[in-house]
């Protein structure tokens, strides 16, 4: 099962849920997740059945540092979202910019609101 595999991965390393905004706009569902310190190459984005798995790996290099103050949250940013049937699995875009991951999920054409022209005779 997809969910068990996901849970196993989460158990090996400490993870935190990324803070973010989720909204629907013009036929897309946008996910904007704050992942400071995560580079483009350290993002893992995967779909398994109806689960969207997001993980941002960040390395703090704690082993070779002596801290005077240590407040920043440790661990990877990870979260699993469940997608419903309205999301087009083939059209998912992601962008990483200034520590923010933006995922664009497109709605299937069939569920997008369609305007039907009324013809006058």
């Amino acid at each position: 099962m997809a969910t068990t595999a996901t849970n196993k991965e989460l158990e090996t390393r400490r993870t935190v849920r990324p803070v973010g905004n989720i909204w629907e706009e013009e036929g897309t569902v946008m996910l904007r997740l704050e992942m400071p310190g995560v580079t483009k190459d350290n993002i893992e984005l995967r779909i398994e059945n109806d689960q969207l798995f997001v993980r941002g790996h960040r390395d703090m290099h704690d082993e070779d540092q002596t801290y005077v103050i240590r407040e920043r949250v440790r661990g990877d940013f990870a979260q699993t979202y469940t997608l419903d049937d309205t999301i087009d699995r083939e059209r998912i875009d992601a962008r990483m910019e200034r520590g923010i991951l933006t995922v664009t999920l497109h709605l299937k054409e069939a569920v997008k609101p369609r305007k039907i022209e009324v013809k006058a005779r």
Binding site: Q65, R98, G99
Partner: peptide
């Protein structure tokens, strides 16, 4: 932590390094 962002201060032999998480800030 939003109005006063979290920081780390690391000390090394010849310098200190301050890290501050500011996602999405230009």
């Amino acid at each position: 932590r939003a109005t006063s962002p979290a920081i780390d201060v690391a000390e090394q032999n010849d310098h200190f390094i301050v890290y501050c998480d500011l996602p999405g800030v230009d």
